[in-house]
Design a binder for these strands. Structure first.
Lengths: 204, 204
DNA sequence: AAAAAGTCTTAACCTACATCAAGGAAAGGG
DNA sequence: CCCTTTCCTTGATGTAGGTTAAGACTTTTT
């Protein structure tokens, strides 16, 4: 079994956890998605472009971020295996995107373009429900993140992130974690020093 | 035509803008949704309760907000006519909600409970697509809001709000607008004074 | 192996907004 | 209509995190 087939198997697995697909459905899906390799630091999407692909990450990791008018980057989320990447608004309306999607490591994903996706909904109606639920999940996660961001200090947000995703510090550089938390790298560095100082005080 | 029928007509209208329903579909939907009246300051949902209803606002306005551990309120969004209210996570998983949904004025909405909603998806599959798109829209709006919140100052967020929703100041008290912007009422008051001062300087 | 690019830390200073406190205006209820 | 509650404003002071600048350390590229 080659790389593409393995990836497709992961995707079918993902779908079958959420609905039941028959063999004909699986064939349609297998034909609709194409394997795409993206090298470290390369982009799947850049701000200003139309989002051509919706992708299912099968290997590696991505960061999805926005660059504001001052040139500062703001990480919207990190995407690892079994996550979806893309800019829904840009993909569905085929209008310029406000987001950048960059590989953090050499990565692979299964991608689908807009017209193929539309056809897949027609051919496999069960996908409507699956994606409704996937998007619902995304929405609730973002809602929680938003409320956390407006109600808690950076240190609480940092602790929450580490608890929810303990390996994150091994996977992405610290300045990108700072960007995810909504603070500058300098602030995160300072904050970690403070935390460490409190830790040693406590143990003495 | 009574109040309920008028409301149902608004809802069918809303759905028919996004898909095509036949008469049987319309009948099913008309039976599934019930009119509910909520007086000013009353709640459709309180933090800690399970979200029993998903609602389509046909009259009035609501605020959806979260109370943090310090007791501070954070407005997630305001909902006016033709908007949906509810806590998706709590509604679909029937688990306690983290949100409060309160009427800002005497209001009316069409509500549906979880099991009726599940049945409506089975009976009218076209609704899957409609709600997938509604939720997609919610997600993109929240995404933009989140990025605005982390990248722009309170004054820029205020200007954006006024531009996007010019009547908001007539509809909701200023301290709730402050809460939506993620600042304290005192800060918004001060900010508006600053803006006004700059305006008069410019015109002299 | 050298050069270049990227990453992390530290320090001094600054600012947007929070906090605390209090008085006044408006609005809604009996 | 008064009384209570809600709402808005203003001032003094505090602070989390931003800004600027610089040095060291690490990784990648050539």
């Amino acid at each position: 079994m080659d790389n593409t087939e393995l990836s497709i198997q992961k995707l079918l697995n993902y779908f079958n956890k959420r609905t039941h697909l028959n063999e004909a459905d699986e064939k349609i899906i297998a034909d609709a998605y194409k394997l795409k390799k993206v090298k470290k630091k390369e982009y799947l999407l850049r701000q200003g472009e139309v989002c051509k692909y919706e992708g299912f990450v099968t290997k590696g990791a991505f960061r999805i971020y926005y660059i504001d008018d001052k040139g500062l980057e703001h990480v919207l989320y990190f995407a690892f295996e079994d996550w979806w990447v893309g800019d829904i608004a840009s993909f569905y309306d085929q209008e310029p995107s406000g987001l950048n999607i960059q590989a953090l490591q050499d990565s692979e994903l299964l991608v689908i373009d807009k017209s193929t996706k539309d056809k897949s909904y027609e051919k496999v109606p069960a996908l409507e429900k699956v994606f409704r639920m996937v998007i619902q999940k995304h929405l609730t996660v973002l809602q929680k993140r938003f409320l956390m961001t407006v109600s808690a200090h950076a240190e609480a947000r940092f602790n929450e992130l580490i608890q929810r995703c303990p390996t994150i510090e091994q996977m992405v550089p610290q300045h990108q974690i700072a960007s995810y938390l909504g603070i500058l790298p300098e602030s995160l560095s300072r904050m970690k020093k403070q935390i460490a100082k409190r830790e040693t005080h406590r143990s003495n």
